[in-house]
Design a protein around this nucleic acid. Structure first.
Lengths: 207, 207
DNA sequence: TTTCTGTTGACCATACGGGTCAATGACATC
DNA sequence: GATGTCATTGACCCGTATGGTCAACAGAAA
């Protein structure tokens, strides 16, 4: 399907992928312009369509590319033998922070895909999205030692509260970075703050 | 400025306001179409511009309208003499749920305004948005009795975790409603679940 | 009949979108 | 040098949609 594109030299592939991801992440499917993408990537318009056929197929390709990139990284760097919930979630957060630095637009793009409701896209993606979240959730919670949690409150709610906390924390970080002049992310600060939240949460939710 | 519009009969005002809010909430500033708004409102295009001058001024008007509507309701229904954090937050959530029923599009519109980054809009709104959040935050936390919270962990973090929990819970509710066939919100269910989270959070975060 | 206000919707300029394709360039084979 | 092959170009097409205007109209009041 995308063999023509895949047999390109890596550098050019990356230039195109990055340009496209950036555009889609910023504007969403409908408003993203192929003209902008080719301009940013430094190729001609015809070539883009030569590689991907049309806009929709390109979007599919990018989604696949991003999800495998991210999940591969998680599977590589997160130790799934670790049974402590907080230790495991800490690993995941560190991986996420790293990738926020190395591939700044990918997360925004993925998020955008999950919010997307352009009719052209929605139907075909809804299944995919559900599958992916399901698989990753299952994998993520696999083998966790839940016996450490206090037993006088509903465990499922505790897990949700913890997960939500770190999601919101990550949103806040992203927002702060967007507001800051240099657009840089202060990793040490984040890790410190994350660690502080870990302390609060372990103290309150563990036995 | 909007005197012509304001001197209309209330029913017509509402028809126009609701149509416009719905359109902006769904599509965001740029993609929202004045054509759609007039169609939905059942008025002619000329009339819309006769009332509001142009699209941007209409957007301003709607933002003002919505924020005052919401804050007025909060100030009316939330008892600011109540010093218990959870009791007060419970009141706020109930008001929000009620309004999610009576004015379904308003929250989506407000949310959309806060996410909006159309260059035409962004600059002029950034100040406004900050001011509003600041004022409301201050008012909301005024007079709360913090002595009930456990003292072995950072209070600010606890407050954040609680706030985030209910924000995420509300997001989840909205999402579930969007997914459900009838688009209805199951209020009893929400209130029950909210109550359960209250129990978890009080037990873990109060002394 | 005239005047006035509220209201209409066809119309304008124009921008921008995805997608195409004849033409070009680059390079290998003969 | 000629021929063939393949990647690559970008001017161009056509359809769509936009915010905004304005001459015309309706209907009530004077």
């Amino acid at each position: 399907m995308f063999s023509k594109f895949l047999s390109l030299e890596k550098e050019k592939q990356d230039r195109i992928i990055n340009a496209a991801i950036k555009e889609f992440a910023q504007k969403g499917y409908d408003k993203a312009s192929t003209n902008e993408i080719v301009k940013e990537a430094g190729i001609s318009k015809g070539l883009l369509f030569h590689y991907f056929g049309n806009k929709k197929q390109m979007y599919f390709f990018l989604f696949d590319y991003c999800t495998t990139l991210i999940t591969d990284e998680y599977y590589l760097k997160v130790n799934f033998k670790e049974t402590d919930f907080f230790t495991r979630i800490r690993q995941a957060i560190i991986v996420k922070m790293e990738m926020l630095g190395t591939h700044p637009d990918i997360f925004k793009f993925i998020q955008e895909v999950f919010l997307e409701d352009s009719p052209e896209i929605k139907v075909e993606f809804d299944k995919k999205k559900q599958e992916i979240t399901h698989i990753n959730m299952e994998k993520f919670y696999e083998g966790i030692d839940y016996s450490k949690f206090r037993e006088d409150v509903d465990l499922k709610k505790i897990i949700k509260i913890i997960t939500w906390t770190f999601e919101k924390l990550s949103d806040e970080v992203l927002n702060q970075a967007k507001m800051s002049p240099n657009h840089e992310i202060d990793y040490q600060n984040i890790l410190d703050e994350t660690e502080e939240y870990f302390q609060v949460l372990t103290r309150c939710f563990y036995k």
